[in-house]
Design a protein around this nucleic acid. Structure first.
Lengths: 247, 247
DNA sequence: GGAATCATATTGTCCGACAATCAGACAGGC
DNA sequence: GCCTGTCTGATTGTCGGACAATATGATTCC
């Protein structure tokens, strides 16, 4: 009958108030936040309370520190921050590699099509560079995985759609570990990836959305074959490698 | 030449340590965290430091409080928590409605196909219920929008793929405001949505992936028509309505 | 068994303090 | 002129202690 009358601790209200200012663009990216003492004075709360609020904003990626800096600045959540949150959530939701694969299969052709339609020359250049790099050096396993991921990323950028860019990050992050195994165990993996990338790049250059989409679908479908050949169970759960992230 | 020698403040290390335990499932969902004082004792830091660490975990949705409760429990990030982070990030990345629409168009057909292939009877029942509800009451604008969103959500659930469920949330959240305008201004919007939902439901019931996918694509494509008819510029930026979230 | 009562533990918030270090000014040497 | 070293002040990270409000759990009573 009655909703509980909402009570919010001060650190939450402070955090929400600052968050609102940032989202409303009253605090624009790159602007320095007032110092903790100053914030405490303005909100009329203790500095400890302000600090708790700031920690919240910090971990949503809305504010951050410049390298080695002390003060906090307003920032946009980076790809990594957003992706980290999502992939962490997926890991806890018992997501399996096949789920990630299915999502990739569903979204990548659309990205490729959009990239083909709207790519800039610079974006095309990056795409070509990445593909060339992957094809060029057949040495390191970790590097190869990173190159493949960067190809996806470059394609997302080429699409000019920030949604695609942000979606790519967590999916690739979850894909990487199993991709590494595939590259290790499936001899023909590298050449097939290389071929698919070449076709996609060509289609994107020619602004041929249909072909780009088609080859990208094929590219992703290949991963599934890769799982099977490499002997990775499709029901394997993706697990966030709990990075220490600190020294 | 030299990498910066990483220094991490104590609150960060504490937060990462706890986060690691959760991700490694050593702290399982629903378990109560030790009290702040106890954590401070174990980590040998001050309680203030522990609290800052907890605020970080809190905002990534890894720990939470039970309604009106005092202690913290380990939780999985809810759909809303994840979606909120993503849509907040998208809003700050100057995402336009057309970007969101394009992403939906790329991902929804895949979801519909997966749902058709794997839907359980319970999931089908929910899908039918939601569609019927939308068709049944033609009254409230806000309710209609919520119903449409829930249809997407139900389809995601039916796919049995947590990735889809988690991706849907933020995209729908960003879509809603403009969808409300469409429903207000475009007279035939409701009947077209209703028709598309009916076809999708039928295809999902029949486990016909191709048809489900096709109608879902059509459904989403209709939104774009809706934007044009309603006079919404495709380049409109999606803006997070900065919810107060507190009273 | 269920309801009211009470003691205890825990959180939210405050205050004050101090060391480390970052930022900027300033001077000196090549 | 530019780099280096030095100094000063401001700011953050961390600590210890304190107290009110209230959730938690045990206890008693019907």
């Amino acid at each position: 009958m009655f909703d509980p009358l909402g009570y919010a601790p001060a650190y939450l209200r402070v955090s929400e108030l600052i968050r609102g200012r940032i989202l409303r663009r009253e605090l624009t990216e790159g602007a320095a936040l007032p110092t903790e003492t100053e914030l405490a004075r303005q909100f009329e709360v203790n500095r400890s309370t302000v600090r708790e609020a700031l920690r919240k904003l910090e971990s949503s990626g809305l504010v951050g520190r410049r390298r080695g800096g002390k003060r906090l600045y307003v920032t946009r959540p980076t790809r990594e921050a957003v992706g980290g949150g999502l992939s962490q959530a997926l890991a806890l939701h018992r997501t399996r590699v096949v789920d990630v694969w299915e999502a990739l299969q569903s979204v990548q052709p659309g990205i490729a099509a959009a990239a083909a339609l709207r790519r800039s020359d610079a974006a095309l250049a990056r795409l070509e560079r990445v593909a060339r790099r992957f094809a060029g050096r057949h040495a390191d396993r970790a590097q190869a995985v990173a190159d493949v991921a960067e190809f996806f990323d470059a394609l997302g950028e080429a699409s000019g759609n920030p949604v695609f860019v942000l979606l790519n990050e967590p999916l690739l992050g979850l894909l990487k570990p199993s991709l590494a195994i595939i590259i290790d165990r499936v001899p023909q993996a590298r050449s097939r990836i290389e071929a698919a990338q070449a076709e996609v790049v060509a289609a994107v250059r020619a602004r041929d959305a249909a072909t780009a989409s088609e080859w990208m679908a094929r590219h992703v479908r290949d991963f599934r074959r890769g799982y099977e050949v490499a002997g990775i169970a499709l029901s394997t759960e993706v697990g966030e490698t709990p990075d220490a992230a600190l020294s």
